[in-house]
Design a protein around this nucleic acid. Structure first.
Lengths: 199, 199
DNA sequence: AAACTAACAGACAGGTCTGTCTACCAACAG
DNA sequence: CTGTTGGTAGACAGACCTGTCTGTTAGTTT
């Protein structure tokens, strides 16, 4: 999801260099589109070192997904908090993270959707992508509940659909109107689903 | 996007067999996840024959995208028509295609989003996926205009975001609640965007 | 009958992929 | 001084990838 790579000012350990490089390359080309040799070359690490930290390439992909999960979920929470204390406002505010991500150089849609598209449905990697979406939706559901939504599950599903739509559109083109319209639609849906205006 | 493969009852030509097989395999595993040899083996065709009809693998992928485009766009139009003559109802009705696709065996999300995720942004293939989404959105925009929407572009953008969200969710899991909620959200958005109720 | 067309069958080249292995080096702890 | 830890450098195996090439077979047209 086009989040910032974890940066380190000081000299990084081999593990960190591998993860940073993998993050950058995997997000840009998809895990399947990047060979282990490329990660090795660009991170300036020995092959044995990479395979010591990540015995199989899939382990590296899972670590990459964990990194993205933290970054993106963090961005969503930050955007929600920035919208104020009212859960109702936060439900709309979290779409700010979408706009921020979309404007970032090299934005290429949702890392989880993109990775899920190229992984087998039963695999560990696919399961991890599903898990991420489940956790995010659970968080939105809780927010919807606190916002007094008539049916929090329903509102959360609708909002995450919009969010995923905005992210999915990002893999095609990074048109900034998508996040803006997603936010506007979210406002309408929240207004329709929460009985009494909080203010 | 999980549309039906073109079927032929009689003996198919080599070209048709190649396209049908490519459709099935590419949709299930992604174009990059299927080797030309596999397409050859499963379609029972000689290698020279495949390369005669499709000089490069990319040509086969483009033909695959054309097939999906026809099938999915056709399904959208059919679902819209099935909802009646009122453009307003058609805007909601087109989401029926999402539910139908989602319930199909082997449903795996949107072929265009999935393919775009694994293709380079400047490539022919990527351009074709963008073109498809553009055409669909233009069609929805026209529908929104005929429905008397205050801002047809805006409503179309919001509805296609929902549609893409529903399709993107399909690559994670084929939960049938997603299409249902997408449709419900579409109803709310259409109601909010079209000034006077038609009836 | 002869020529042409479409397809089949499969070897082959040249490249890339993952993952394993050997050998070496530098820092540091006891 | 010696053993351990963490890293570098790169050869190697075995599989798979795309795309080309040779040769054969069957049906159709002239």
């Amino acid at each position: 999801m086009a989040a910032t790579a974890p940066s380190g000012g000081t000299r990084q350990s081999a593990r960190e260099r591998i993860l940073d490089t993998a993050f950058r390359l995997f997000y840009a080309h998809g895990p399947r589109g990047v060979g282990v040799d490329t990660v090795i070359a660009e991170s300036g690490v020995a092959k044995a070192t990479l395979y010591k930290h990540f015995p199989r390439k899939d382990d590296l992909v899972l670590a990459y997904l964990d990194t993205v999960d933290q970054a993106w979920f963090g961005a969503l929470r930050a955007a929600a908090r920035a919208a104020g204390d009212e859960p109702r406002d936060q439900l709309v505010g979290l779409f700010g993270a979408l706009g921020t991500a979309c404007r970032r150089e090299g934005y290429h849609g949702c890392a989880f959707i993109n990775t899920a598209a190229e992984s087998a449905p039963g695999s560990d990697i696919h399961a991890r992508t599903v898990e991420h979406k489940t956790v995010v939706r659970a968080w939105v559901t809780e927010l919807a509940r606190r916002a007094g939504a008539r049916d929090p599950d329903r509102l959360a599903r609708q909002l995450t659909l919009l969010l995923d739509g905005g992210l999915a559109a990002g893999v095609l083109d990074a048109d900034p109107s998508a996040p803006a319209e997603a936010r506007a639609a979210a406002e309408a849906l929240v207004a329709a689903a929460c009985p009494r205006p909080t203010a």
